[in-house]
Design a protein around this nucleic acid. Structure first.
Length: 685
DNA sequence: GTAGGGTTAG
C-alpha cells in the first residue's frame, strides 16, 4: 500500500512514530525526505507552515496501482519508444481509467514520487517510466523539469552512469544540463561536470552558480590534488562569465589552486577576494600558506600569515603548522624554532604535527639529538608521537646513507611505546634495500610478519626491486611468485620492476610476455613502463625497439616524460651516436618538454663520446644562457670529453671553473682531473 | 574554522 499519510496537525508528527513504516520528516517547508522500512517507496510531505500543499491536506493518494502498472509494463515502455508518441485515446481503457484517477494530484507530489522511486535501485526503472507516462496523460508538465528531478535524484544516490545514459534520450535543456553537472560533481567526477559546463557555455547557456561550487567541492574533496587543466578551464570560464564569485566560491578557488601546487593562481583569487571587500576563510589562507611553503616561497607565506592577523583572525595551530612547513622545506631551522617560540608566546598549543615537522627538520639537519629531545618534550606535553614521525626520521637517514641508524630508530620508537606500522617497515626495508643490505631487509620483512603485519604491494615491490638492483634477479623472480601465492596482487609498479629486471638480463622474450601479462591482469602500462622499456632496449643498443615503445606510448595518448627522453638520449650517448642523440633531443623539445640539466649532461656525453668536444662545450653555453645551473656531472663529463680528444691541458681549467661556480667536486670529478694530469705528465716525459 | 603529513618502479 503506497499512500500519503494523513496530514499531521502539529509539526511533530506523533502518529508516524507508531506507523508500521518509519517516516522521517524534514523540518523545511515543501521539502521531502523519506526513509523506508517497507518494500514500497513512501512519499511523505511536510506541511509545517501550510503553503501550496496545505490544500491537499484532506486528500490521500494511493500510488500503488500506478506503480504496479508501470513496473509491469516497464519493459514495453522502455523498449518501445513509439509508445511515448501514442495519443491517450489509443491506450487501453484500463490505463485511461488509471490516469483519470490521478487527475487531481498536484505537480509537487509527482516530483517527490519520482525522487522516492529513484532513490531505490528496485524502483529506478519505474521512476524512469513514470515520466513519459505523466507526459502522455498530461498529468504533469515540463518534461525537462521532471527529467532534471530524476537526474538529481540519481546523482544523489550514486547512480551517475544511469543519469548520464538517461541524458542521451532526454532533450538537453538548461535544467537537465544543470542537473547532470550537479550529479557528476556529487559523484566525484568534476571532469565530466566541467565537460557539460563547457557544452552549456558553448550554447550560450548559463550554468547555475551553485554548480561551480559543487564542481570545486568535488575537486577539493578528491584524495588526489585537483587537475590543473580542470582548474584552468573552470577559472577562465568564471572570468568570462563576468560575475562576482561569492565568498565561498572564492575561498574554494584559493584552496583548489593551492592544492594543485599553483600558489600564483591562488594568490590571484586572494587578490580578487580582497578587491571585493571579502575576508577569505582562514582555511583557505592556511592552504595557501602551505602551498607557498611547499614551493619554497616562505616570504610570501609569511606575508599571507601576517594578513591573517590583519583580517582580525587569530592564527591557530594549523596556520602555524603551515608556516612551519615552509621553513622546514627550505631548511630554515632558526625560523622553524622561532615559530614554536611564537606559538608559546601567543598561547597556541603545538600539536603532533607541529612537533613532527620540527623533528623532521632536525633530522634533516643531522641533529638527531635535538630530535630526540623534542620527542621527549612531546611526551611531556602529552602529545603522543606516532609511527609517522619515526618513518620520517628513518627516511631521512636512508637518504643520508645512514641506514645503520634504522636499528636505533626502531629501539627509540619501541621505548616510547609506539608500534611500528606497515609504513614504517616499508621504509625500513627500502632503506636496507637501497644500501645493499638484503639480509637486514629480509630480517625486517620477517619481523614485520612476526608482528602480525601483512606485507602489502609496496612491501613486495620494495623487496623485489632491492633484489633486482643488487643483481639477484632469480631471487627477485622468486619473490614475485611468492607475492602472488600469498594473495597479494601485483600492480603496474610491480610489473615495471620485474620488466626492468628482465630487461637488464636481456631476457627479451620473457620481458615481452610479462608486458602482455600486465594487460591481461586488467592493469595499464604507464609512462614508467614505457620509459623502462626504452631504457633497457636503448642500453643494449636496440634502438629500433626503443623508438617503437616510445611511439606505442604516444599512440596510447600518453605524454612522454622528460625521463623518457633522457633514457633515449642517454642510450645514444653511451654508444657515441651523437647525431641520433641530438635528433632525440629535438623531438623532445618538439614535444614541448623543457630540457633538464640531466638530459643536457647526456647530450654532452654524446658529443664527448663522438669526439665532438666543441659541440659538448656549446651545450654548456646553452645551459648558462638558459639560466640552468650546471652540476658536478656536467663538468666531469666535459673533462671526459677533453680527455677523449687528448686535450689534457684544458682539463684543469674546466675543473677550476667548476669550483668557481661553487660546485663541490666529487670522487669521480677528482679522478677525472687526476687522470688528465697523469696523461699530461706522460706526454711531457 | 575540525582539516593537513609518511612508503615502491623509469
Amino acid at each position: 500500500m503506497l499512500q500519503l499519510p494523513p496530514p499531521p496537525s502539529t509539526t511533530t508528527f506523533p502518529a508516524t512514530a507508531f506507523s508500521p513504516v518509519r517516516l522521517l520528516f524534514s523540518l523545511h517547508r515543501n521539502h521531502f525526505t523519506l526513509t523506508r522500512a517497507s518494500s514500497l517507496p513512501i512519499v511523505s510531505v511536510s506541511t509545517a507552515s501550510g503553503g501550496s500543499i496545505s490544500s491537499l491536506d484532506s486528500r490521500r493518494f494511493d500510488f500503488s496501482p500506478l506503480i504496479e502498472f508501470l513496473s509491469s509494463s516497464v519493459s514495453s515502455i522502455t523498449a518501445d519508444t513509439d509508445s511515448d508518441a501514442l495519443p491517450p485515446e489509443k491506450l487501453s481503457e484500463e490505463e485511461l481509467t488509471l490516469a483519470e484517477s490521478y487527475n487531481s494530484v498536484p505537480a509537487v507530489l509527482w516530483h517527490s514520487l519520482i525522487k522516492s522511486l529513484a532513490s531505490e535501485p528496485a524502483s529506478l526503472s519505474t521512476a524512469a517510466a513514470l515520466i513519459p507516462w505523466l507526459l502522455r496523460h498530461r498529468l504533469c508538465f515540463s518534461s525537462d523539469l521532471l527529467y532534471s528531478i530524476l537526474i538529481h535524484s540519481l546523482g544523489r544516490h550514486r547512480r551517475l552512469q544511469l543519469a548520464l545514459s538517461l541524458s542521451s534520450s532526454t532533450p538537453l535543456s538548461p535544467l537537465t544540463l544543470n542537473a547532470l553537472i550537479s550529479a557528476s560533481a556529487m559523484n566525484s567526477r568534476p571532469d565530466i561536470a566541467l565537460r557539460i559546463l563547457v557544452l552549456m557555455r558553448r550554447r550560450g547557456l548559463l550554468p547555475d552558480q551553485q554548480n561551480y561550487t559543487l564542481i570545486l567541492q568535488s575537486l577539493i574533496h578528491s584524495p588526489d590534488p585537483p587537475d590543473p587543466s580542470l582548474l584552468f578551464l573552470l577559472s577562465s570560464d568564471l572570468r568570462s562569465l563576468c560575475l562576482e564569485p561569492d565568498a565561498r566560491l572564492l575561498s574554494d578557488l584559493i584552496v583548489a589552486f593551492s592544492r594543485a601546487s599553483d600558489p600564483d593562481g591562488a594568490l590571484a583569487f586572494l587578490a580578487q577576494t580582497q578587491a571585493q571587500g571579502i575576508t577569505p576563510k582562514s582555511s583557505a589562507a592556511v592552504e595557501l600558506i602551505s602551498s607557498l611553503g611547499n614551493a619554497g616561497r616562505v616570504d610570501e607565506a609569511e606575508a599571507v600569515f601576517a594578513e591573517l592577523r590583519h583580517w582580525g583572525l587569530q592564527p591557530r595551530t594549523r596556520a602555524y603548522n603551515a608556516l612551519l612547513k615552509g621553513y622546514v622545506k627550505t631548511g630554515a631551522l632558526k625560523d622553524a624554532e622561532q615559530v614554536l617560540d611564537e606559538m608559546e608566546h601567543c598561547g597556541v598549543a603545538p600539536d603532533e604535527r607541529t612537533y613532527s615537522l620540527l623533528i623532521d627538520a632536525y633530522t634533516n639537519a643531522g641533529r638527531w639529538e635535538s630530535a630526540r629531545i623534542l620527542i621527549k618534550e612531546m611526551e611531556a606535553n602529552n602529545v603522543r608521537p606516532n609511527s609517522f614521525v619515526f618513518s620520517r626520521i628513518l627516511a631521512s637517514f636512508r637518504d643520508k646513507g645512514e641506514w645503520q641508524r634504522s636499528f636505533a630508530v626502531l629501539k627509540e620508537m619501541r621505548s616510547t611505546g609506539i608500534h611500528p606500522d606497515r609504513h614504517f617497515f616499508n621504509v625500513m626495508i627500502d632503506s636496507f634495500g637501497k644500501h645493499n643490505c638484503l639480509h637486514h631487509a629480509m630480517d625486517a620483512f620477517d619481523q614485520m610478519r612476526a608482528d602480525g603485519i601483512t606485507p602489502d604491494v609496496v612491501t613486495w615491490n620494495t623487496l623485489i626491486d632491492a633484489h633486482s638492483k643488487s643483481g639477484r634477479h632469480d631471487q627477485a623472480m622468486k619473490l614475485f611468485e611468492e607475492m602472488q601465492i600469498s594473495g597479494c596482487a601485483p600492480c603496474t609498479t610491480t610489473y615495471n620492476i620485474v620488466i626492468n629486471s628482465l630487461g637488464e638480463q636481456e631476457k627479451w622474450e620473457e620481458m615481452k610476455e610479462l608486458f602482455g601479462r600486465l594487460r591481461e591482469q586488467g592493469l595499464l602500462p604507464n609512462v614508467v613502463t614505457y620509459t623502462t622499456l626504452v631504457d633497457v632496449y636503448g642500453k643494449s643498443g636496440r634502438f629500433k625497439d626503443a623508438i617503437e615503445c616510445l611511439e606505442m606510448m604516444k599512440s596510447g595518448g600518453m605524454k612522454p616524460s622528460p625521463t623518457m627522453y633522457h633514457a633515449l638520449v642517454n642510450a645514444y650517448a653511451q654508444k657515441g651516436l651523437s647525431d641520433q642523440a641530438v635528433h632525440a633531443f629535438r623531438v623532445m623539445r618538439a614535444d614541448g618538454i623543457k630540457p633538464s640539466v640531466l638530459v643536457l649532461n647526456s647530450l654532452i656525453n654524446a658529443f664527448g663520446e663522438d669526439r665532438r668536444d666543441t659541440d659538448a662545450f656549446s651545450v654548456l653555453q646553452f645551459m648558462k644562457q638558459h639560466d640552468m645551473q650546471p652540476d658536478v656531472v656536467t663538468y666531469t663529463t666535459l673533462m671526459k670529453a677533453l680527455i677523449r680528444v687528448e686535450k689534457f691541458e684544458k682539463v684543469p681549467g674546466v675543473y677550476e671553473e667548476m669550483i668557481l661556480y661553487g660546485i663541490t667536486p666529487d670522487r669521480k670529478a677528482r679522478a677525472m682531473l687526476r687522470s688528465a694530469l697523469k696523461y699530461m705528465k706522460h706526454a711531457l716525459s
